[in-house]
Simulated scan of single mutants.
Amino acid sequence: MAEIVNDTVKVFWAQPGVYINMTDNISGTYCKWTEGQGSLWVNHNAEQRKLTSFPEIQTMLTSGEEVGWVVNITECQCASGPGNCYDGILGDTIKGFKMAKDSSIHFSNSMTTIFPVAMNFIQLITFVSVDANNTATFRARHVDPSTWEQDDMDIMSCPIDSGSSIGDGAKFYVNNI
């Protein structure tokens, strides 16, 4: 997990897995890059090509390309009304997908997040549907990883970022090699 505050990045890590009330294997570092403090290796990201429509996303996925996605929740329409969904950014690489009869694309993502200040774990499971009308729907469930009880669920709908100057919506991309 990484958190950026002004000019300082806080990076925390642990071995993969679910650790209930076990925090002794968590490590971390702080890096204030404007003053040369800390040690953090930063690599330049691969050049990315933005996918700006459903047909582009569908073509890249069905041809076996690795497609990434990222969405800023504040740029989406929350199903339960404005301000009722949490703020944040979601994203990952599509590792598997299903194409429905109506051509919509469905995939999911799951990650365990730790909030180091409170030593609180949350399992975030996101279900995504990308539709031919150039929209993406995100259903994000917050689950307690120790009991698997659902804590909260947000449903958001976003347009696929068309590459216009506004830049709002769900962004999809492939890495150029």
Rank of each mutant, 00 (worst) to 15 (best):
V117L: 10
N45K: 11
E75Y: 11
C158M: 11
T137A: 07
H44D: 09
T59L: 15
S53G: 06
S108N: 13
M156D: 06
I166M: 08
L124E: 15
D144F: 06
I94T: 01
D152F: 14
I114K: 05
Q58R: 15
I26H: 01
N133T: 03
G167P: 08
D102R: 05
V174M: 01
A46C: 04
T147V: 08
N21K: 06
D151N: 15
M119R: 13
Q58I: 03
F121N: 11
A100K: 12
D92S: 15
W69A: 03
I114S: 04
H142A: 13
Q58G: 05
A132C: 08
E56M: 02
A14G: 02
R139D: 12
I4E: 04
D102P: 06
I166N: 13
H44G: 04
D168V: 09
T23H: 06
S108V: 12
L124Y: 10
A118L: 12
V130Y: 02
N175M: 13
S104Y: 08
W13R: 02
I155V: 13
N84A: 12
S146E: 14
C158T: 12
Q15D: 07
S146G: 15
D7Y: 01
I73C: 15
G169K: 02
I160N: 06
S27R: 04
N134A: 10
F107K: 09
K50M: 10
W148V: 07
K95L: 10
E149M: 09
V9H: 00
V71G: 05
R139N: 13
N72R: 15
D131F: 06
M60C: 14
S80P: 02
G28W: 02
A140G: 09
V42P: 01
K95N: 15
A46Y: 04
T62M: 09
M60Q: 10
M111W: 09
F172G: 06
Y86M: 13
K171F: 08
Q58P: 02
R141D: 11
G91W: 10
F138L: 13
T23E: 03
N72Y: 14
S39C: 03
S27F: 05
L51V: 00
Y173K: 10
L51M: 00
C85I: 08
H44R: 14
D92V: 10
Y173H: 13
F107I: 08
S129F: 08
I94N: 02
A132G: 09
T29C: 06
S53W: 00
P82W: 07
E35N: 00
G17A: 01
W41R: 12
S162M: 11
T135K: 06
I114M: 15
R49T: 11
G88T: 11
G88Y: 13
C158P: 03
A118V: 05
G96Q: 11
G64W: 12
K98M: 10
T126V: 14
F138M: 07
I155R: 10
F121H: 08
P16T: 00
K32S: 04
H106E: 03
Q123A: 10
Q15Y: 04
W33P: 02
T147Q: 05
S63P: 00
V18G: 03
M99I: 15
I155L: 15
T62A: 04
T74C: 11
F97R: 02
M111A: 13
G68L: 11
G91L: 11
M60T: 07
P116Q: 04
D144K: 06
S103H: 14
F121K: 12
K10R: 05
